[in-house]
Nucleic acid binder design. Sequence first.
DNA 1: AGAAAAATAACTTCATTAGGGTGATACGTT
DNA 2: AACGTATCACCCTAATGAAGTTATTTTTCT
Lengths: 210, 210
Amino acid sequence: MSRDLDIHVCIIEDDETIREGYAFLIGNTAGYKVISTYPSYEEAAKKIVHDNPDVILLDVELPGISGIDAIPKLKKVLPETYILILTVYEQDLLIFRALGNGASGYLTKNTSPQKIISAIHEVMEGGGPMSAHIARMVIQSFQRNEATPLTRRETEILEQIATGKSRKRIAQELFIDLETVKSHIKNIYHKLNVHSKADAIKAAKDNKFI
Amino acid sequence: MSRDLDIHVCIIEDDETIREGYAFLIGNTAGYKVISTYPSYEEAAKKIVHDNPDVILLDVELPGISGIDAIPKLKKVLPETYILILTVYEQDLLIFRALGNGASGYLTKNTSPQKIISAIHEVMEGGGPMSAHIARMVIQSFQRNEATPLTRRETEILEQIATGKSRKRIAQELFIDLETVKSHIKNIYHKLNVHSKADAIKAAKDNKFI
DNA sequence: AGAAAAATAACTTCATTAGGGTGATACGTT
DNA sequence: AACGTATCACCCTAATGAAGTTATTTTTCT
């Protein structure tokens, strides 16, 4: 029998219609098997370890513990299991918290059935499935603000400061004089209108200058 | 005529076979038009502004200025143009530098022709096309190491230190005594086997403790 | 080639911080 | 009872950080 080769999926989703819809969809696709479905993390917590799924489809808005907060708890008992977030929310904060907590993918609920299936496959093959708009937001989170008032050297030095290095050490590593570093820092403070390391770092990060 | 509705594409790639292959592929797809192709950034720099493409397919290994370094220069003169990286390299550093420099997508060269076409379409529609493995690496970059030796409080304090705040300020903001902060820092240093802010931050970041 | 911007450096002054050592208390868990 | 955690205390010295002003050299752009 080929059942052992199937990808084992669990679904945690409070809306019964959606939950059973996904279960039906996935369960009727060759190569996939739905082991169990739960309406909340609390319900899942008891038995999901024994289900030992390959992939969990997880909603973010759940009664009780939210999907976001459930991720680390699930990863703790099932470290090898991939967690795919399936939600209507496209807010940056939720996305980054989900990924930071250990989710391996993030899909919005308008994702077509075939794409959900292929996302499950993709995550098993070493991918990181994301809806198009989510991927854009993730990529944007890496990008700098081109309209920085800081010069290259200033940006470089501010980055070094943000790693906790002292001015002296920065000077040594950049092969310039300590006085030069101090000059750059003064200019940085003026441009950012701050009077301390911490405020400069915060201002620069808020504006994506570093 | 429908030419005005086509997606205008430029290709910068030094290997002539690959370059012409892509050009042929894309140019013969309905809805896409290849405006120009160049073997290097230097060649492109002169004329690409007038080409005013919607999307640039960019190789990373180019003679002269590398594709990575070309990104900000291209974005400067064509701020509305999307840049898709097309390369054989899958190193984290290259990927993150490319995205940080302003690339809107990152595809590996084993990507199928249809997927390249759909990636161009996707980026125009607000997506962030990435090859599966790239997306996985990007997602992993958000994730923490659960096996941290640091306690919650220690992690919290180290994060504060990483923002450049002084011990005194951290104490005030966390409503604890300066001495307590110092104690925590001493414990952090012991656990991470370091003797300075900078080294602690580096060690923690390298191991994804923060 | 010439102007503008950026990077470099010197000098002063003053307040604050960082790092290390040692120990103690309280609270919860195992 | 022992342990990890979080809390606070007091000691010490050297180094760092911030603000001010001025000036030279090097790069970059037009």
